[in-house]
Design a protein around this nucleic acid. Sequence first.
DNA 1: CCGGACGCCTGTCGGC
DNA 2: TGCCGACAGGCGTCCG
Length: 271
Amino acid sequence: MPELPEVETTRRGIFPHLISTKIIDVIVRDRRLRWPVPAKLGAALKGQYVEAIDRRAKYLLFRFQQGCMILHLGMSGSLRLLAADTPVEKHDHIDFVLENHQCLRFRDPRRFGSVHWTKADPYRHKLLDGLGPEPLNEEFNAEYLAGKAAHRKVAIKNFIMNSHVVVGVGNIYASEALFLAGIHPARAAGRISKLRLSRLVSAIKQVLTDAIAAGGTTLRDFTGGDGKPGYFKQELNVYNRTSEPCPSCGAVIRQASLGQRSTFYCPHCQR
DNA sequence: CCGGACGCCTGTCGGC
DNA sequence: TGCCGACAGGCGTCCG
């Protein structure tokens, strides 16, 4: 499910309700996520107050006075703030019970999500160390991307989905950004002019910013922390629009497979 | 180092 | 209606 806008939407939805709130219990119903939920998680969190919720790439960082919980939503994960007595449903794997009769509930049908606990700097954690820049930061710019792309033969779509190049760009927004930039998704990354890479940087920033403003993209069942869906789906130009007319030129949108993932593009606008 | 394939899971959808 | 394969928004790991 979640790409950067959905993770950010989740963060913005939950943090106002969690800041300075005490975790009084942690109920783990199924530890079998992508990696096992740490056995010590409950003991580590109980009695601690949430000091901040940050985001790095698609990871949510729950900051406590003594340590940090790193949480990834994987492909199908969600976090919702609920009344503590809300009946549990299938795939509700973890409850973080709060002092105000509320609970933060983690649901993840496919169990590709994960939860980690560290007392050290989370940015030094194995999963976060070495990640590329945040796409909305200034350090992600044309000079940076051109330097990274030099001599690379990989398809530009795979390239921008590589978290060592830039984080947070998943399958939906990669297709959308390449459409906005007018670049064919299969073009070799090292064979794109700096001017066009510059346009791609702008397109990535724009599509992610717009998607965050719309509350993310709800394709199937994504909802933010408040249970509301995202509305960016209405603004998608090519994703999931195979055989429909290109909104810009009217040509038929094509679907192809690139790096085991579906890719959507306009054969006329994207070169 | 690079590029590509694989696998972890469950749910859904389309075709027969 | 039921079965079965393909596919789904991620990403660490392994192999050549």
